[in-house]
Amino acid sequence: MPSSIPASVTAELQDAHGRRKGPVILRSLLRDRYATASIIFLLIVLAFAILGPSLLAEQARALNLKGRNAPPFSLDAGWMFILGGDALGRSLLARIIVASQNTILISATAVLLSVLVGGLLGLVAGYRGGWLGDVLLRLADAIMTFPSMLLAMIVLFVFEPGVSNVIFVLAVSRIPIFMRTVRAEVLELKQRMFVVAARATGASTSRVLFFHIAPMVLPTIINLAALEMAFVMLVESGLSFLGIGIQPPEVTWGLMVADGRNYLGSAWWLAFWPGLAIMLTAMSLNLLTNWLRVVTDPVERWRLETEAR
């Protein structure tokens, strides 16, 4: 209730807005311990994904006799073997870091593609409506009610199960979610009085869409993208685990779990750590969404700012 807040607070807030927006958001982030931890973890994963292969490709391939089947937490073979080594004597830590690139690249690209295509289709279907909107919606429903794993299976059966095809399949199966969400928001937003107001002033369709509607939809899309990224990562790992996703010699976390499964009795760590990496990344993305939902809402953010003072 803005009106129930004393005027002095409101006045103080005024300068909190423009100039101090950055620090305020940072402070609200720091206050949410889970969100802070998630962001730090995700940044580390991102750094690994970008830099990992160029820095550690050698270590990931190097065969170290001492490190053969080395159990985790023993430093006999050096700190690279802190998570253990595989049957060939390769460092598990180095391999996880190198594999992060494919894992992150595939899910991020797939989500980005579905955001772009789904978002655009959703804008069109929501704002224009008509028969095109109806057809798009039916199509989205058809894809959504269908288990994405089966969709992936049939496409990857027909085409080669390489990196780009996996991205394509994952993107296609997630487009409907973005389309439906954006469409629903646009349908609601275009009835909002401030959009009607812009139209009544003579604003062009593109101005209404990109000045008034898109910025309102953006936070929802960002939140959903983070959530979907977690989901897509799980599906990709599942596909790779089943042997119909990414194929060796490419490597992803899901594939590493599948490899490690054969050594479950003797070297549990081979399957454990990559799976844990998937889980922690997915969890961080989920936690991040919870926080994003709050800061991307202007009224909620204003509350945070009030509290920050």
Binding site: M193, A200, M216, P298
Partner: peptide
């Protein structure tokens, strides 16, 4: 020009 009922709704919050 126009003035609508609910000023909260008719002004873009962003």
């Amino acid at each position: 020009q126009f003035v609508f009922q609910d000023p909260t709704a008719s002004l873009n919050p962003r």
